[in-house]
């Protein structure tokens, strides 16, 4: 999953300090592995360099200096395209997709559309596999079937999430 895009998305709801970003990320997406603070710092540096965020102000204080990051227009556009672009269907995609859905909900974007285009992407791949299956030998078929069943599981998850979007939205924006 793309941590840069996720952090950018989190900034959309308002400027934050690096430390707050880490806390917000961990709370929503870092279920089993918290984000290292260093990674936040280096990611923000890269985003800053690319002009996707800007530093709104530096608070001098006793400890290390604290920068407040804010998202730029270019950053918003970047989040936009990222969310709209379906992920390449591959196993264990859920974390990214989940992050995307939550961010879409957080930023008031149509999460259903996101799921739909992801479904379309999955189906596209499944069609390809199905086609390959019908022309290939038994080994090919078995391999394709394996992938198909995994993709189908993802798709089921997509369906389920789509059916529960309202519930999720209520929880996320609480």
């Amino acid at each position: 999953m793309s941590i840069g895009h996720t952090l950018l998305g989190l900034l959309e709801s308002g400027p934050r300090h690096g430390y707050d970003l880490k806390r917000a990320f961990d709370e929503r997406f870092g279920h089993d592995r918290p984000l290292a603070y260093g990674q936040v710092y280096s990611t923000m540096a890269r985003l800053l360099k690319n002009g996707l965020v800007e530093v709104e102000g530096i608070e001098p204080g006793g400890g290390p200096e604290r920068k407040r990051y804010a998202i730029t227009d270019a950053g918003v556009t970047d989040v936009e395209t990222w969310l709209a672009r379906p992920e390449k269907p591959e196993p264990y995609l859920q974390t990214t997709l989940y992050a995307k859905v939550v961010l879409a909900l957080l930023t008031g974007r149509p999460a259903a559309d996101l799921l739909d285009s992801q479904r379309a992407e999955h189906l596209r791949l499944m069609r390809e596999l199905t086609r390959r299956k019908s022309s290939g030998d038994l080994a090919d078929q078995l391999i394709c079937d394996h992938a198909l069943f995994h993709l189908e599981a993802d798709l089921r998850w997509l369906e389920l999430t789509a059916a529960r979007l309202d519930q999720l939205a209520a929880e996320v924006t609480r």
């Binding site: 285009s117 499944m126 069609r127 199905t130 189908e152 798709l155 369906e159």
Partner: peptide, 23 residues
């Protein structure tokens, strides 16, 4: 509603609450 069955199609459309979107 089975993806593996739908995979035999060239194209799919989704119906939700009586509205369909041609993808």
């Amino acid at each position: 509603h089975e993806a593996r069955v739908a995979a035999y199609s060239d194209r799919e459309i989704v119906v939700r609450d009586g509205k369909s979107r041609d993808t």
